[in-house]
Every structure is written in structure tokens, then in C-alpha cells.
Design a protein around this nucleic acid. Structure first.
Lengths: 231, 231, 231, 231
DNA sequence: TATGAATGAGGTTTCATTCAT
DNA sequence: TATGAATGAAACCTCATTCAT
């Protein structure tokens, strides 16, 4: 009803240099300690919010629960985020950015394309499928239509890069003769599809029928590269 | 604001017995009109609820909006459904059951396995990808974890049958020499994965990068069956 | 799910003479049958409403439940009563009037005053305490403040008459030397108080500590008339 | 319309620690004012709820009205009580506990039994009959059957103790020769009955026929103890 | 900066009453 | 006359957001 701008929303970056210098007298290192504590709190909120949003979805998540889980008061959340909606949006960014960063820090592309992709799949298996990170993917699928900015961000930062990267690998594989199906480069989604399905399957159907994602991905690669010799 | 019948929503089954007594000439009394109107209303509610749940997800959907869209009063919804939650659960059943029924009315399996699967993919393309039915799939992915009964139902009625059916086709393809990769029968998910990805892609990223699902599926089948001759 | 009329609720008695008479022409006694049916229905509604109002109080009673219990449709209630409120008010009248009528049909006042009062107490014990009629008293105590017309009616028809009657008996007792405490005639409530308490006790505390109302009333009369010889 | 603090409702116990820190001199910060305000609010809610429940009964009372009367927002009620039902149950406890406490702080039993009982009756007259406390008794009679926990509590804390206390006094009276009717000790309800009737009479029939409760109780005691000399 | 009590709009659900059949 | 589907006002309760401390 009353609309008051609430400058509390500043990102931690903003926040960092927003420190006001201490009361006269004794203030040895508390400045950094202050900032550190704030960053910790923010991290706790982000972590807690992730858990809750994943468990319940955006609309059904209560800030009260996030606060409780993060060990802060409800009001504190508003010192870090403008409101629930932008918290969700920032959240996705905050969690995804380091993933993208890691992807960009490519390992030097040595070995065969199959080996490269197998390595990649291995990481994906370990760090995404069946983990909270995987659930985040499902969360984005779930909330994307209501949060275009989230879908935009996710497409721009993750999907389009992932597709481009895969396309590059596929073209390399084709050039080297490892991959026969030339049209695959036009639809790198095909390469990724089983991995995505595995992510979703773990969230929804794991208890009905557990899925050996690793083995499935291997079969999929055999399909693309032809039968392999060893593992 | 009030009254906006929207009888468009009725499933064809509902529709069948919702008709007055068809025989032309005799139309003295609107005999079954009471029951018919009730069925129409119920169908309108189902249709409206589908739209709203798909557009906003379970928690963010307001019964008020469903009622408005269905052209009924809020209270009317409660004549048909116990509460919001069971409305959602029944909804999924109501919409999915006829789909399953249609799948069970198999077309006589003639021709090559590839042809069979292409036909199937064609239907899927036309009737699921990019349609409200596709959005329902996304909705189930989104809400499944919070509605185990929905996930259970969907697994039992759709997923497990779909997987089984695909496995059968794959085995046939292997037996006939159409499919070389024998392990594929262990993971029919691989066969379906690109189709599922297409469904999700249309919901989330169509406006960022339109996807020619038909062509993608064709490439995927080439990968599995080897290069095709004709279309 | 779909609402199945359930007119099954009618008692078999109702049902028996529920026969509708034949096609036009023959209309022997249907007028009376009509009226009879209506009266029966009304009686069923009154009975059902009593039960429900006693069990739940005015506000918490649902017309739906009354209708169900009476074996009529909800709308039918409105053919007999203007609305819930006046139904309640009329109800009290309907149930109480015959009681008053019976009281007015006094048994010829023979014997000692104590015998008269003992007879009266005996009837009260049998017909009020621990019965639905007793619950009605509690209901009036409960709802009286919100239904002045009910309280008025009850005071006028029952309380004031009862008090007057008791006062007459007390004065007779005093005149005959059966009762020593002359001031008792000024407060006949004292004579009735334990009986009323018994009514309330049965409703509220019977399961905590059963009360032998008969014996209590006897002790009370001993107090007023002096020790008795026999029962 | 908004804001009508009504702090009058606090029980004396609440009030005690609702005060700021009394020790004069040190009053720099309104230290406990947070807690104090909370206690005040709670007391206001309790008071308002009492009024409304008494005026309308449980089912017909609107939380909105309680909030308005207490001068708080609707949501505030839920900071103090789980829901309407448990609010009602707690309410009875909150109001009755101090009464019981006061009863337990017995005045030294000096004088004759009749004097003792007259004193007690006098207090009852002043503090219960015709007061809101009396209305509470009627409310319990009204709602008891639907709130077994309330009836239980009331029986345990008030009725059973009251009965036991009265029985003790009666036995004392019999032992001292003040009371002749020995069976009275078996039904102390008889001793209390006119007082209870007075309570109910005031709620329901005061405007039809005012009742001089004091005089009635005196007559009742005369009946039990024999004619008195003085007042 | 951090808190959490307080707010009140808004959501779900109930139910007295109406009215077309 | 009787029905019961439909209505929609109104009740309870939740929870994002604010703000005094």
C-alpha cells in the first residue's frame, strides 16, 4: 500500500563499499568483519532459499521458512533482496554464474572428442544429476514461464552456450571422422537430451524405477560414436 | 464478467453424452439438459483450470480466476471438486486418460519399425509439442515432486507404458536388423529424450531460438536407424 | 464425485404414503393426501432441525444437514419456513406449545402438595432431564440472548407460567402447613432450581460425574417439606 | 473505528509484569516495553474475544469483530492464538484460572457456617451474577457440548472443586448442628442451584422480570439453616 | 545492521438462499 | 409442490512486507 523504495536491495557488491566507517574510537578490524558477516548471512539466505524454492516452488515458499532455515530474521532478508520475486531471480543468477564460469575455464581439449564428451558427461553425472543442482534445472523448467527474466538468463548464460559448445565438439567429431551423422551438428540438443531426461527422471521417477544414468549416457554415446572398446 | 460459458472445453467423450437426444425431429423437451448443463460446466471448469494451472502453476493459481474463466461462480467449483488440491490431481487424470486410451487403441503395426516410430513421432509432434498438452507435461514435471499422486499416476499410466512400448519397438527393430545398437533396448528413454526436450524447449525457449522439432526428430531417427532414403 | 440425488433419506413411513395419485380424472382424496404429505414433511423438517440445532447450536447448523436428515431437498425447507432464523424461532414454538398444553391440562389437584410436586418432578425427570427436551432447554439458554423473540416466548409460555404455578402450589403448601418457610412463595425459582441444574448437569457433566437426579430432587423436597416417611 | 486499545482486559497477573521496569531512577530505555505492548495487545484480544463470544456464541463470532474491538489487525490474533477454536478454549482458561486462584486463597474460615456461606454468596452476587463473568458461565453451558475440552476444564477446575468445597461446608454445618438435613451433603448442587439459576435468569429474563438474587439466596439459606436473626 | 511483531490484502472454502426445471 | 445446482457474500486464515526498536 505505501510503497517505500527500500534501497535494501543492493547486491553484495554494492553493499561492500557501502560500509560506513566506524564510530570514533576503537574499531580495529570490525569493518572487514562486518562485511564478512554480511556476506555470510547473504550466503546463508541464498542457500536456504535455494532449498526451499526447490522443495516447494516459488509461490508456495514462505519467506518465514527461508529465514528460519538461514538462521536470520525475516526482516533481514529485505536488507539483501528487494522482494521475493527479485530474490528468486537473483538466486538463479547467483547459483548459476559460478557454474558458467567453471565451464568457461575449459580444460585444454586433448584426446578424442568422445573422450572429451565422456569427461564432460562424467562431471555432469557427478555434479548435476540427482543433486540439488539438478533440481535447480527442474525448478527453472517449472518457473521459467512465469519468470521470463529467469528463462532469458538461463537461455543466454547456460543453454545457448551449452548448445554452442556442443555444436563445436560435434563438428570437431565430424571433422575427425569420429561422428558419422553429419546433421547432428544442427541439433546438439540430441546430444544433451538423455542427460536432461536423466535429471528430470531422478526428480520425478527415481522411486518408481531407478535409472542408471551413467550407463544410459554411455549407450547414448555408443549410438553416436559407434561401439566403444574400453571404458 | 459473469457468464462466459466456454463450452469449448469438453472432452470429446464428455461431449458425446452431453448432447441432447440427437434423433432429428423429436426435440420436444430438453430432456437431459440438466445433466448436460452440469457436464458442460464441469468441462468448462476443467478446461479453465488447465489453462490457469499451466499458466501459473498450482500454488499461484487462484480459484477465482478459474471460476471467472470458466464462467461459473466460485462456489460451483466445489460442486465438482473437493478442493484445489484434488482438483489439480483429478485434472491431470481427466486430461491424460483419453490420451492413454487413444494410445491403447493401437494402429495395426504394419511396415518397418522406423515407419512405425515416424508415425508415432508425427502424431506426437502434431498433438503434443507446442500444444497445451505439451504444457501439461511441463506442468507435471514442475509440480510432480509436490504431488506424488500425480507423479505416480503419470508414471504408471504414461511413462511406464510408453517406455514398455518403446522397448518393444526397439527390440523388434533389433530383431529385424533395423537397429544396430543392441543396448538401446535397455534405455528406451534415449529414443524418447529428444521429443521430451522438444516439448520443454517449446515452453521455455521457443522465443529465444525456435526449434524445428520435426527435423530434429528425423535426425535423431537417422542416428538410430541409419541414414534414411525418403521422407 | 458427481452428486447422486439420494432421496433415499425418507423414512419408510414417509415413503409409504408418498404415493402420488393417478392421472387427471380420478382425484378422490388427494387434497387431504397432499396436505397430509405436506404436514409430514414439515414435521420431518422440524424434527430434523431440532436434532441439528441441539447438536450444534444455531449458527453452526447447516440447512443441508437438516434437509438430509429430514429426507427432503434443501429448497423444500424454504417452502415451509422463511429462513433459517425464523425456522429456529418457529421451531421452539412448535416444540414447546404441546408441552404447555399438556401442563395446562392439569391433573386434578388431589393429595398433599408434596405428592403433587413429587408427581410433577417425576414427570419432569422422565420427560425432560437427560432427554432431547432437556437439551432444548439448554439450547434456549444458549441462544436466548441472540434470539430475544425466543427468550420472550419461552419466558411468557413456560417460565412465567411455571413460576406462577409453583407459587400457587407453594402457597397452598404454606396454607396447609406442609411448608414452613413462608418466603419461599416469593421465590418459586428455589423450588425449581435443582431440577434445572439437573438438566444442565446431564448435558455437560454426566460423563464426569453422573448425577442421580431423582434422589437429588427428593432430598431437595425433604429440605422444603421436612423429612418424608416412605417413597 | 480503528485503535481502541481497551487495556482494561488484562488479568491482574498479566498486568503485573506488563509494567515497565519499575525501579525508579533507571529508565533510560523503555526496556521491556516490547514485551509490555505484546502483553497489552494479548489482553485486549482476550477481552474483546470474551465480549464477542458472550454476545454471539462461538460460531457466530467473527474474528474480524474481535480484531476491531481489540484495536488490532486480524493477523495479530494469530500471533497469539492458533485458531478460532483454540482461542476460545484458551480464553476460558485465561479468564477462569485467576478466579480459581482467588478461591484457593481461602479467607480464614471463622464464624458460623452460615456466615461463611453468606460471605461467599455475597461475593458471588457481586462478582458473578449479572456480570460478564456470569455470562461466561452461560457461555460455557451453551458451548460445552461442542467443546468437550472446555467442559472438561470447567468441570475439573471449577465445578468439582466447588462441589467439594460446598460439601465440606455442609458437613461442617451438619456436625455443628447448623444444618438439619443430613442428606444435603450428598447433593451440594442443591446449595448452589439457586445461585446458578440467578446467573442464568439475569442473562435471559432480567428484562422480563428482574430477580432480586440477594434476597432469593437469603431465603434459600433460611430454608437450609432455618430462619435467621440478623442480615 | 538486525529483529520480529504487526499489518491487511488476498486466498480458499462454506453455506444460506434462489430459481429453472 | 419439490428439487438441488448454482450463486456469491462472507468467514477463516496465511504470508509478503513494513517499521519501531
Amino acid at each position: 500500500m505505501t510503497k517505500k523504495p527500500t534501497k535494501a536491495a543492493m547486491s553484495s557488491a554494492d553493499r561492500a563499499n557501502a560500509k560506513h566507517d566506524a564510530p570514533p574510537g576503537n574499531d580495529a578490524a570490525p569493518a572487514s568483519s562486518r562485511a564478512a558477516r554480511a556476506a555470510e548471512r547473504r550466503a546463508a539466505i541464498v542457500e536456504a532459499a535455494m532449498e526451499e524454492f526447490i522443495a516447494r516452488g516459488f509461490a508456495a515458499t514462505r519467506l518465514d521458512d527461508i529465514a528460519k532455515r538461514a538462521g536470520v530474521a525475516k526482516g533481514t532478508i529485505y536488507l539483501h533482496f528487494k522482494d521475493k520475486e527479485s530474490m528468486f531471480e537473483e538466486l538463479v543468477r547467483i547459483v548459476i554464474v559460478p557454474v558458467v564460469a567453471k565451464l568457461n575455464a575449459l580444460p585444454p581439449p586433448t584426446g578424442t572428442v568422445r573422450e572429451l564428451i565422456e569427461t564432460f558427461a562424467g562431471n555432469f553425472l557427478k555434479e548435476v544429476i540427482g543433486t540439488r543442482r539438478g533440481d535447480l534445472v527442474r525448478l527453472i523448467v517449472a518457473e521459467g514461464p512465469r519468470f521470463p527474466s529467469v528463462a532469458d538468463f538461463y537461455y543466454r548464460e547456460v543453454v545457448s552456450r551449452g548448445i554452442a559448445g556442443m555444436r563445436g565438439l560435434i563438428e570437431l567429431g565430424i571433422a575427425r571422422g569420429e561422428i558419422r551423422e553429419k546433421n547432428l551438428a544442427r541439433y546438439p540438443q540430441i546430444l544433451v537430451a538423455p542427460a536432461m531426461i536423466a535429471v528430470i527422471w531422478q526428480s520425478l521417477f527415481a522411486r518408481h524405477a531407478p535409472l542408471d544414468a551413467q550407463e544410459m549416457l554411455r549407450v547414448h554415446l555408443d549410438l553416436i560414436f559407434g561401439e566403444r572398446r574400453t571404458t
